[in-house]
């Protein structure tokens, strides 16, 4: 799963961010650059997090930025981002910090469900996820795949 995303250029690696909003926007940028989503999709995600809180951090260290916004999505896909410094979503709850980001974009339910299943399977190995969290460069990430 991650290998395909890297091959497609649907990933980015960063040292860190001043705030979660910049991190979320950066996580979507490769999809914007590729035309897979419109720039407004990043706004939708930011607004969703502002409205609902940091529930997109689904597990320690893992965030899944996404929004229900089919008109701004051209391709049903995932996009990976690694922040080497944890991104803080809630200063009072560091269990909501994340270094691994998997953007979800969907305009096709069936394909989206397959993507989610693939992602869940990918993330089910805790030891692997821990190693991925520590990997700081593309080479280090590739070495794990």
């Amino acid at each position: 799963m991650l290998k395909e995303l890297i091959d497609k250029g649907y990933y980015s690696i960063h040292d860190g961010f001043d705030n979660w909003e910049d991190a979320v926007r950066a996580s979507v940028q490769p999809l914007i650059d590729a035309g897979a989503v419109k720039p407004a999709y990043a706004d939708s995600i930011v607004n969703s997090v502002k409205k609902f809180g940091p529930y997109i951090v689904i597990a320690p260290d893992i965030a899944i930025p996404h929004a229900e916004d089919k008109p701004n999505v051209n391709e049903t896909t995932l996009c990976f981002m690694k922040s080497n410094t944890p991104v803080v979503f809630d200063p009072e709850d560091h269990e909501k910090d994340a270094r691994l980001f998997f953007v979800l974009a969907s305009n096709d339910e069936e394909k989206h469900l397959k993507n989610l299943e693939g992602l869940m399977e990918f993330l089910s190995d805790e030891e692997f996820v821990a190693k991925l969290g520590e990997a700081k460069t593309l080479e280090e990430i590739k070495a794990l795949l």
Partner: peptide, 15 residues
């Protein structure tokens, strides 16, 4: 259930 009904709620459903 989740904010949008398309991400984490699907994941919770699977799990």
């Amino acid at each position: 259930a989740c904010g949008n009904g398309m991400g984490s709620s699907q994941m919770i459903k699977m799990k």
